[in-house]
Design a protein around this nucleic acid. Structure first.
Length: 372
DNA sequence: TAGTCGTGGTG
DNA sequence: TCACCAAGACT
């Protein structure tokens, strides 16, 4: 790892901040330093690209302009506002933290990174970002950009996938950060990481800090950052049930924990759980599912495969392959044993649907359309 | 600690 | 189709 003298640190700060003053991105959450604005944007930006966040942020601020309005928001409206952004626990934690600020802090934000981390959904990165940007506290905000940029600049060989590596970077950056303009320093690193120093297709030779970039000067920047690989998503085969009646479609609320908690979806059944012998055909599995629905919920439904491609959806660590099955049921069918309810399509736009549910709904509609 | 938690973009 | 990435937090 490269060590810088105080003179080099000063020169780096000046170079970085001069570049930032001239070339910083004009982003909606950079209009002011309101902690509410900084906070909401930082939460939305977690693992999410800037261009994806912008429209969500603008709509969110119109709908929930203050921390008080967010604290009082209806959860359905909140989830609808977050629909499609993913990592939905962020939205729930956001409202939890809003209530903490309103109730525990009487609407007055804590200003140190340490205090901010006590709020739901605010970890070490976000605490540093809010403290530095909104409250001018000289603390590092170590996100993926900071890891990447400083690993390259200083040839830091520690694996950034390991949690313990964070404190190494925090120590380094806290020594380098501008004490006068910590928020701009942190944001400049992010802009650098999103432009000249991206993960792939970086352009170090035109970077404003190329003279400080040791790995570039040594011609070994592709080594950095050091990061161990992730596991590939595990495939899961499901049947997705599209059951219709005059009362609408049968939707099931997902469990309160796990993936997509509390989301309403077409009922999913793991095909693996229906397999008795390896040689079972899918037709046999469908027949077995019909019997199971009868036995478990007293629902007799004839299921038919929906023509067309199976719906595929990849999460970070799971890959779902869903075979759609359709069937009709009487509106008077007894649902008292079934963990779901009829929902009219007119209600769909008010509900927050996950991407995978939207894909199933779309695939089903396309098939019906092509039939007629 | 390592696994869990979404989605969209890119090569 | 796949691997990997993008302003991480929580358990």
């Amino acid at each position: 790892m490269v060590e810088w003298s105080q003179d080099q640190i000063n020169a780096f700060q000046t170079t970085l901040l001069t570049w930032y003053d001239q070339h910083k991105r004009d982003l909606p959450w950079r209009q002011d330093h309101d902690p509410y604005h900084v906070w909401v944007s930082e939460i939305m930006l977690q693992q999410t690209q800037v261009q994806t966040v912008i429209p969500y942020y603008l709509r969110f601020m119109k709908q929930f302009p203050t921390v008080q309005s967010l604290a009082e928001a209806d959860e359905t409206d909140l989830m609808k506002a977050w629909e499609g952004l993913g990592y939905y626990s962020r939205a729930r934690n956001l409202q939890r933290a809003a209530k903490q600020v309103v109730n525990d802090y009487h609407g007055h934000w804590p200003e140190t990174a340490s205090e901010l981390q006590d709020l739901s959904g605010i970890g070490p990165y976000t605490a540093g970002a809010i403290a530095s940007i909104a409250f001018n506290q000289p603390v590092a905000a170590v996100d993926g950009n900071a890891f990447r940029v400083f690993a390259r600049l200083l040839e830091i060989d520690d694996d950034i996938a390991k949690p313990q590596t964070r404190k190494i970077f925090e120590t380094v950056i806290n020594r380098l950060i501008s004490k006068e303009r910590p928020g701009d320093f942190n944001q400049a690193i992010m802009d650098l990481g999103a432009s000249y120093m991206t993960a792939t297709n970086f352009d170090s030779s035109n970077s404003p800090v190329k003279a400080f970039n040791q790995s570039y000067l040594d011609g070994i920047e592709s080594k950095y950052p050091v990061k161990t690989k992730k596991k590939r998503p595990v495939p899961h085969n499901y049947f997705g049930l599209v059951i219709r009646s005059s009362k609408g479609y049968l939707l099931e609320k997902r469990p309160t924990s796990g993936i997509l908690p509390n989301f309403w979806m077409f009922p999913l059944y793991d095909q693996q759980a229906l397999i008795k012998e390896k040689a079972d055909s899918q037709a046999q599995l469908i027949q077995r599912l019909e019997k199971q629905l009868q036995a478990d919920y007293q629902l007799s439904i004839q299921l038919h495969k929906v023509a067309g491609k199976t719906v595929s959806h990849t999460f970070t660590h799971q890959k779902w392959l869903i075979t759609l099955l359709e069937g009709d049921l009487s509106a008077t069918a007894d649902l008292s044993y079934f963990p779901g309810k009829w929902i009219q399509t007119t209600q769909f736009p008010k509900m927050a649907f996950s991407k995978v549910q939207s894909k199933m709904w779309e695939a089903y509609q396309n098939q019906r359309l092509s039939k007629k």
